[in-house]
Design a protein around this nucleic acid. Sequence first.
DNA 1: CGTCGGATTGAGTTAATTCAAAGAGTGTGG
DNA 2: CCACACTCTTTGAATTAACTCAATCCGACG
Lengths: 253, 253
Amino acid sequence: MKNQSYQDDVDIAAASLERMLSSFVALSPADVDRVRGWFHGPALVHPPGGSVSLHPERQDARVVARGWIARGAMLEDGRRQIVGLSLPGDVILAADAVDADMAVWALTDASTLDASLLWEAISESVDVSPRLLEAWRQVRSAERLRLARHVIRLGRLSAYERTAHLLLELYERQSRLGAAEPGVLHLPLTQDMLADILGLSAVHINRTLQQLRRAGLVDYRTGRAILPDLQGLALAAGLSIADDLADAPPSRD
Amino acid sequence: MKNQSYQDDVDIAAASLERMLSSFVALSPADVDRVRGWFHGPALVHPPGGSVSLHPERQDARVVARGWIARGAMLEDGRRQIVGLSLPGDVILAADAVDADMAVWALTDASTLDASLLWEAISESVDVSPRLLEAWRQVRSAERLRLARHVIRLGRLSAYERTAHLLLELYERQSRLGAAEPGVLHLPLTQDMLADILGLSAVHINRTLQQLRRAGLVDYRTGRAILPDLQGLALAAGLSIADDLADAPPSRD
DNA sequence: CGTCGGATTGAGTTAATTCAAAGAGTGTGG
DNA sequence: CCACACTCTTTGAATTAACTCAATCCGACG
């Protein structure tokens, strides 16, 4: 709630991105410094629902410091489809957002910083170590994989499977950054927003979450979800996201 | 039907890729030569349904010479979801295909060539002119945009809209390469395959195509579709893909 | 002429939707 | 501290889009 200073946001964003990069490829201290140097204020603050403008001009990019941001489409008749989520540390490239019916907007209170220096450095391969470049590529690759999975989710999974699948993905994403307590998913999304991600109605999301709760797989409350049985959830999702979670065996207390 | 020689396939693939690249950024003759130099035989021939193997090892990539290739998931229970299509001239990167439940397979008789030289050259920025690099980036960017649109299609469009939307996208893709006669879409897909792209059942695809025909928007036969009214089709798709088609004003004869 | 892989049709079923109303939780101002 | 307002969630009932299953049709090909 307290008003974060710009410098705080810079630090948070840089730290998050750095954690994300090094979760793929270990970075040298020099690389870490480089990452920090890429961002400057001022941070832009986005209220929930506020749109995040990226200029199609070359190399425009923003990094998320706080909050969750959606990329997707808002059709004229009110239908909405979220194509992807950007969490703190994620970089949103104008190239990915530019399209007639595509938009970027904040789902929660959020703030972003200019990251065009980063994008420029990486795309010109100037002042970037090979490891850093490789880490960045893997981040991008993971993004593409998420997009592909999103397609599969929407195309062929039932509401029940879809929901399980998404929650697992988000959990995996958060625990990769090391932030999450085991089994606890920070989830600042309303059921409306979940519906817009999963291509379902909010009402049906609600019923599906109840099913998942009855099955002992998910305990949802606005702001967070508890996933007491990751294995079971993976099973419910029907897809093999499970691999990465195998470390924590199903606790049967 | 006649057995294409390997050299033919190399030529075809290189020419298609070159046309695709230069549809975004005009290439110099030297660049064109460079593109041609990137591919060698032997071509791999893939029968319909045959899987295209890409080795996750660094930089593996294949270019499509003939036929249509699908990237997607085949679930254990037989459900199938196609995430993206690769047409002649398209490059399939191992990095995009690698995942537990992800696969790449031929939809028609197809042949592909090793393109790891290309991918290597581009990712190292060695022996690549800035224009060529820029063209490649735009190709990739167009791919990402298609993926995003696929998500929107599956998440929020009705069967009718979805089908119209996909046909338009394919048409736009083909006419960009200059190959298509106006209003004619080369479409070597069975209704089953369309179903696996659009996340619908084959039966429902059939009924939807009939609706579109009755509306005077699509005349489908295996192997090709005729789109007599692109404006109307764009309207039916509900999304503004229309822009690129504006050149041909609605003929009211 | 028979066969085989699509395509088409019909009938019954189901998953998810819409609409409408009511319940909870939280914050604000009196 | 209560009452109101607001947003989000929950529930019920009716509707619908899309699915499944099974039969039939059609066209290409040997």
